[in-house]
């Protein structure tokens, strides 16, 4: 995963799957838990390759990690809302995979929560389409499942 690069300051070099190299400070890189152990052993000439992360994703992740601490405590919610505001469903899913792979502090929760808001209270068909999930229930299995989870209290009034 690591290869040698020309020495520079003590920044960490991260290489995305589409070949772009980003230089980030150790403070930023350390918040990506997956690469933390690699940072310890690396010197300034090391380049860490990130197989599941595209340049677009890493740009957003760095934007988050730099922007959140800079926001006043009362402005964190507004910053997070702004951060996810213009992302399309496809971008959200791709970013969530990247964030999940890198295990970025705080960002997994924000992204997962944002995606949850898009699908909550939507129909089963909508959700399948959204995630590209194939229904693997047979009609009989689904009927059985629905029967098992029927409400214990059907609303029939005893009075």
């Amino acid at each position: 995963m690591a290869e040698k690069a020309s020495p520079s300051s003590n920044s960490i070099s991260l290489k995305t799957v589409d070949g772009k190299i980003f230089k980030v400070s150790p403070a930023i890189a350390n918040q990506m838990l997956t690469i933390q152990p690699l940072i310890k052993d690396s010197d300034s000439s090391t380049i860490i390759s990130l197989p599941d992360v595209a340049a677009f994703h890493l740009t957003k992740i760095i934007e988050y990690l730099e922007g959140k601490p800079a926001a006043a405590p009362s402005a964190v919610d507004a910053f997070e809302a702004q951060f996810v505001k213009d992302l399309s469903p496809e971008e959200l899913k791709g970013l969530l995979i990247a964030v999940g792979y890198l295990k970025v502090n705080g960002l997994v929760d924000l992204m997962a929560n944002t995606v949850a808001k898009l699908i909550e209270n939507k129909s089963v068909e909508y959700v399948r389409k959204f995630f590209g999930v194939v229904n693997d229930f047979t009609p009989a299995e689904e009927a059985k499942c629905r029967q098992e989870h029927a409400w214990a209290f059907d609303g029939v009034d005893e009075d």
Partner: peptide, 30 residues
């Protein structure tokens, strides 16, 4: 397709009633 641990993260933020009455029927994994 998103990995299962990511699906768990997403669904854990969803409303309880919706999970029980709808999300459960998306597929067997869910």
């Amino acid at each position: 397709m998103l990995p299962e641990d990511i699906i768990i993260e997403i669904l854990s933020w969803a409303p309880t009633m919706w999970l029980h009455h709808h999300a459960r029927y998306v597929c067997k994994t869910w």
